[in-house]
């Protein structure tokens, strides 16, 4: 590991002041420390933001949540208000990593974790995300758990966060402080980038930008997060889905779908909001047939790679099944 200086920031202002182009912010470190050990991340300085005072979950009068970026994943998952009002978010957090890692990991760090593509994590291999212009061996190589949507010739990696998938379905946004001063809100749908020609950038954030909180609008709908993986627990998603469903007369009544939110994980460089499926479903009867038709409409646009075609039926069935279960509760 490259030697680095370490500084602990007590406030967001202090963190911004200590950050420069050779520095990285340190949250829980569960991904960053590993990447440094692997030689993938080589900061000259770590600015520790895990002790900033943005470590609380506030519940708004409207039923929304403001989750501080330094809140530990396990504290978010244990929060009584979040468990009642936003179960899909809590379910997503709980399917991520292990109990030990959730105790260390922060909400802000979770959003900014890097892909687990094995070529990205192996400095002896080319990777356009790690070393722009060096190539992407995953496209023709080991890619059984890579993207089926929105990838490019330069990168077929997926975003690994479960929480971000739920936040995408919830139309959440992040509060960001920049070096120029001032705070801005970035919707989840604009936070993450498609890889395009420059996969080295995962997000639309600028160097030095600091996430201080996540704003989650009220939900008030039946919701669910489901994740399919290669073992029962402690593994990244092959495909996951976050859904919320608003049906006239209640989800169990078989009425008309007024609104729905569907986001997929494990399928793209970013949490994949299934806009096509949502459009098909709005105004349709809340039946298993409609759900399957909506899922198929989304997956028609998929561009699977040689060894991940299985994700197309898997995602189709997962969307349809999870929506159906919501109407059966």
């Amino acid at each position: 590991m490259r030697p680095f200086a370490y500084e602990r920031a007590g406030t967001a202002e202090e963190a911004l002041a200590k950050h420069d182009d050779d520095a990285l912010y340190l949250g829980g470190g569960t991904n960053l420390v590993d990447l440094m050990r692997l030689g993938v991340a080589t900061p000259a300085r770590l600015v520790d933001v895990a002790h900033l005072p943005c470590d609380r979950i506030e519940r708004g009068a409207d039923g929304g949540l403001v989750i501080g970026a330094a809140v530990r994943n396990s504290d978010l998952a244990a929060d009584p208000a979040a468990r009642r009002s936003h179960p899909l978010l809590v379910e997503a957090v709980l399917t991520g990593a292990s109990g030990q890692i959730r105790n260390q990991a922060t909400v802000g760090g979770n959003l900014l974790q890097r892909t687990r593509c094995s070529y990205f994590q192996d400095i002896t291999k080319p990777c356009n995300k790690r070393e722009p212009g060096s190539g992407c061996p995953a496209r023709e190589g080991e890619h059984h758990n890579h993207a089926i949507f929105g990838h490019s010739a330069a990168c077929v990696a997926t975003h690994p966060s479960d929480m971000a998938v739920a936040l995408a379905a919830l139309d959440a946004s992040v509060r960001v402080r920049g070096r120029g001063g001032g705070e801005r809100a970035v919707p989840l749908g604009e936070l993450y980038r498609r890889p395009g020609e420059d996969p080295s950038r995962d997000t639309a954030l600028e160097p030095g930008d600091l996430i201080t909180a996540v704003e989650v609008p009220p939900l008030g709908l039946p919701s669910r997060y489901r994740k399919v993986r290669e073992r029962a627990s402690f593994a990244f998603a092959l495909v996951s889905v976050a859904v919320a469903l608003d049906v006239e007369g209640g989800a169990a009544g078989g009425g008309t779908v007024r609104d729905c939110r569907i986001a997929l994980g494990g399928v793209a460089h970013l949490p994949w909001r299934a806009h096509r499926a949502e459009a098909v479903l709005r105004g349709a009867p809340a039946t298993a047939e409609s759900f399957l038709r909506a899922a198929e409409a989304e997956l028609e646009a998929a561009e699977p790679l040689r060894d991940n075609r299985y994700k197309v039926p898997l995602a189709t069935n997962l969307i349809a099944r999870t929506l159906t279960e919501l109407t059966e509760r």
Partner: peptide, 20 residues
């Protein structure tokens, strides 16, 4: 796995300097 300030964590992923 150890208990760090009462919580279980992976000690391999914790930088000692960050837990002064």
């Amino acid at each position: 796995t150890v208990l760090l300030d009462g919580r279980r964590v992976n000690a391999c992923l914790a930088l000692a300097v960050a837990h002064d």
